[in-house]
Design a protein around this nucleic acid. Structure first.
Lengths: 136, 136
DNA sequence: GTTCTTGCAAAATATTTGCAAGACG
DNA sequence: CGTCTTGCAAATATTTTGCAAGAAC
């Protein structure tokens, strides 16, 4: 019934179960990153553990990336189609202290940083906190 | 008995109690950021709540800054003397996936990023995860 | 039937607050 | 005395695991 969503899951080698399709659809429709708790509230008939494992599966297979925005609850947002979550592909995240939402600013790429000798970058987390355009 | 440490606290308008002096000394001697749990293990005779509030007091008064390194436990590290924790003063943090330590790379400043229209930056959190020089 | 997925329960970890006792000026 | 700090207890929040039942292939 939703060939696009199933295809997206299969492209990341994730079996398209109904729960996963539901969560993926929500992530696609959302303009901000969502937490496990957000999903639990949204799908209040669903089990939290299932939602947790859904997100973990998505993350493991690089369908989503996690964002530690400093609020104490990790957020998840869809990766771009060809994303492999490499440091040079990562982008800026913005957390609004007023509306409490966290956004991916995909257009703002991670600036090139040269680390000291022998430091090797694997993943990055770049978050700016402040006021978003709607709240400022 | 430790005029330097007391002065440091007073400069940030923090009453120099013995507990605070102890924690400050530990932070000064450490070459990496510490978590509440680290302090609890280190000062096993001290109460966790007191350590927690000590760190919060330090943070509120900008003696330390917190780092969300993605491990699930927040780390704290000393600010530089004149630091006001403004975005343009912030530096890079590095978390080593092998030795599990988180470092301030004070010499690597936060790169200048121009946010979209009407976004206002207040604080930043920039963490790169990977292998540090000793573990690579 | 074998593997993958889900639901329920519960554990593990981290953070935060209330309140009364104590220290300090 | 009054304010700030500390210690103990307990609440809250978040993440994670175990295990058995169910669905999918």
């Amino acid at each position: 019934m939703n060939p696009g969503l199933e295809k997206t899951l299969l492209a990341r080698e994730i079996s398209p179960t109904s729960m996963r399709i539901l969560v993926l659809k929500e992530l696609q429709n959302s303009d901000h990153a969502v937490s496990l708790n957000d999903l639990e509230v949204l799908f209040d008939q669903a089990d939290k553990t299932t939602l947790y494992r859904t997100l973990k599966t998505f993350e493991r297979n690089k369908l989503v990336h996690s964002i530690d925005d400093g609020t104490g609850s990790v957020k998840y947002a869809l990766c771009e189609e060809t994303c492999e979550c490499l440091p040079e592909q990562s982008h800026l995240h913005f957390h609004c202290n007023k509306c409490e939402l966290t956004f991916c600013l995909n257009e703002i790429h991670f600036p090139k940083i040269s680390l000291p000798k022998n430091f090797i970058a694997k993943e990055t987390n770049l978050v700016i906190r402040g006021l978003c355009d709607k709240c400022s």
